Simulated scan of single mutants.
Amino acid sequence: MPEKYFEVRWHARAGQGAKSASQFLAEAALDAGKYSTSFPEYGAERSGAPMKAFNRISDIPVRVRSNVEKPDIVLVIDDTLLGNPELTAGLDEDKPLVVNTLMEPSKVRELTGFKGKIAVVPATDIALEEIKRGIPNTVMIGALVKLTEIVPLDSVKEKVTAAFSHKFSDEVVEANMRALERGYQEVKIDG
């Protein structure tokens, strides 16, 4: 029987935090007693260039090291990428496409042609309101956890707190916790 992992594919532009989000998710999964991997794929390595990040999470050791081709969820951190057919490649219609956007799910459906589940969250706006920076990765992790429950939200909160508390003030850590919680609460799914 082939091994089955929970597979995540992130689409973003370099510098938007997809690699960090993928890493936080993998570490939260490890803390929750699961096995996990996280790795990015860059095209032209420059800020603003399209890039991908991947996760595999499982109750058994993860032995596959290739890119995710049949994701259980796809997260799009930059809605200017919506015309790219790679976004929904391999994504079954019963799996969610999650987009950081102010658009309604119907508009995302029109732009992508995806007929399955579409979830939207205004992650950049939430990040600007809470963190005062337009880096939406923490918000997107909250949305992912809400839609999949692959790891407990508390595990992600602990991991983000541990990672940020060494670099930033308590105020910044708390702002990220609020952003994470809002992503969890404010994601809307259609389909």
Score class of each variant (00 low, 15 high):
D92Y: 07
A21K: 03
G183A: 07
G15D: 14
R46I: 10
N176T: 00
K132T: 01
K132R: 11
R133W: 01
L111H: 01
E104F: 12
K70N: 15
A18N: 06
S22I: 07
I135R: 12
K167Q: 01
S66W: 06
V172P: 00
M103R: 12
L153W: 05
V120E: 14
F168W: 02
W10Q: 14
V62T: 02
A21I: 03
P61V: 07
F164Q: 00
Y42H: 04
M140R: 04
M177H: 12
R56Y: 08
I141Y: 04
V173M: 06
S38K: 09
M51G: 04
S155T: 08
I57L: 14
K95Q: 09
A18H: 07
G134H: 03
A89P: 02
I141V: 11
D79A: 08
V151D: 08
K34Y: 08
A175R: 08
N100F: 06
N67S: 15
V8S: 03
D31S: 12
K188D: 01
A162F: 11
P85D: 13
D170Y: 03
V98I: 13
N176K: 07
T148H: 04
D79I: 12
T88S: 09
E158S: 12
G183T: 11
K95S: 10
L180G: 08
S20I: 15
L82S: 09
F54R: 09
G183I: 12
D125N: 12
I150G: 06
A44M: 14
A179P: 12
A12S: 15
L82W: 05
A53D: 05
E45S: 15
V160W: 06
N84L: 03
E41H: 07
K117V: 08
D79S: 09
M103K: 14
E45R: 13
K188A: 08
V64D: 12
L91R: 02
M140L: 15
A44R: 07
A89N: 10
A123R: 05
G116H: 04
P85Y: 03
V68E: 06
Y184I: 01
R109H: 02
D92H: 07
E130Q: 11
T148F: 02
P122F: 05
A127P: 08
V76M: 07
A32D: 13
L111R: 13
L147W: 05
L111D: 02
L82D: 12
P50A: 10
S47L: 11
Q23T: 14
K95C: 10
A53E: 05
V76F: 04
D92C: 02
G43I: 02
D59G: 09
L97N: 03
A12H: 05
P152C: 04
P40W: 13
P2W: 11
H11F: 14
K95H: 10
S155M: 12
